[in-house]
Nucleic acid binder design. Structure first.
Lengths: 216, 216
DNA sequence: AATATGCCGTACCGTACGTTACGGTTCGGC
DNA sequence: GCCGAACCGTAACGTACGGTACGGCATATT
């Protein structure tokens, strides 16, 4: 290793390296297919030699890109779980809207396409990284909210994971798969807000405390 | 043109051609990545020249494969919409179970991965074909059931498409995206049946006539 | 000033793969 | 039994791309 600038899986990328990763993202979004090392080098105005020194190989570059984008998305923080139904509803709506905005963003679409393509061949963990930082990360962050809601007597469910998965389905519906397959589906700000509210209402209908407890 | 056996987009493939397409499917499922023309020819015990004569080029071969698999899945027929709640519930459960079985099958996963990978580059309509024969086909087939349920006073919704999308979300949840990204999620027969029943119950809770009408 | 380091730009290498071409074989029609 | 069409197996071609090597430049260090 010595003093080389090789970026390890855990290191923070430098500013220049982040610029390179942004170039990868922009190229992914615009060209989709043409994500070649030469194209990246040209877009980022760096040499291929530098790419290989920093990221090892193509896989390493892609993995670093996924992590970089994940770190950026993760930036949004969430408030403490609260005790009244209005705040709970707002929290859920916020989660839903954020999630819809993420999965409908061109960056997320391109990244997921890439990871899904690589999931076909075993030798690569891009899919795992995307799952870990997408689907599972949001699940982990929503869980305390759901459990706080249950503790406050606002929600009723046995397993928070199962409850979350229903919420996930009500929010996302067919949006992600349609976008991934190239359907021209556009979600504006107002549409996202409306869908988030609808999904939240439906979730509260299913798992709220007022009506009789659902679930077999 | 002349008497060549070139298969057009609308033609039915011959038995031998279907065998070739099955070889493509098996190769896709097993190898994922290694879907090369040479590998297909070897697996199908045919010459590459024949592949090109029959399917034009690689794109044509893949498109024919998608259509072939779609035709096979479409084989399942569905009964007439009925008028009592028990039959409606059974119809919905049947749809849900079928859909879960499809999206969790190795063939569907491999096919969707391929189509998603190709959706990144514009010049290909594999994604459109998959959408048309998957998501949209099932939507079209479920719609008469939903509308019959509404006409019979069992369901309440303004837009059958919107209602269907909620059903779609409640059934699929995070299953498809997790499988596409390589998550090791296995759905057995009993699990599918349980999930289908749960999703149907939840859908009926949201859109059934008995409780107050939901939806803003 | 001299040397070293880090990086850009580009040329280069090896390989994988889509596509084409061709010789040999099987088979239906005459 | 002969002819042509269809098809198999394989070799060959062209290209695209991952990865490497190298010359030049700019900045930092001594």
């Amino acid at each position: 290793m010595a003093a080389t600038q090789t970026i390890a899986d855990t290191d923070e990328p430098t500013a220049r390296q982040r610029a390179v990763l942004d170039a990868v993202l922009s190229l992914m979004v615009e060209e989709g297919d043409q994500l070649t090392m030469t194209a990246v080098a040209r877009r980022a105005s760096c040499s291929k030699e530098t790419l290989y020194k920093w990221f090892g190989d193509r896989e390493g570059l892609l993995a670093a890109t996924v992590r970089w984008q994940a770190a950026r998305v993760r930036a949004g923080r969430y408030d403490r779980p609260t005790l009244d139904i209005a705040t709970l509803r707002d929290s859920l709506k916020g989660f839903a809207a954020t999630w819809l905005a993420v999965i409908s963003s061109p960056t997320s679409i391109a990244l997921n396409r890439l990871a899904i393509g690589h999931a076909a061949s075993r030798k690569s963990n891009l899919g795992g990284i995307v799952l870990e930082n997408g689907r599972f990360a949001i699940g982990e962050r929503l869980r305390p909210v759901l459990e706080a809601g249950r503790d406050a007597g606002l929600l009723a469910f046995e397993d928070s994971e199962t409850a979350f998965r229903s919420f996930f389905g009500l929010v996302g519906r067919d949006v992600q798969i349609r976008l991934l397959l190239g359907d021209s589906l556009t979600l504006g700000q107002d549409e996202i807000a409306r869908d988030a509210a609808r999904a939240t209402d439906q979730f509260l209908t299913l798992y709220g405390r007022k009506p009789s407890a659902p679930q077999a």
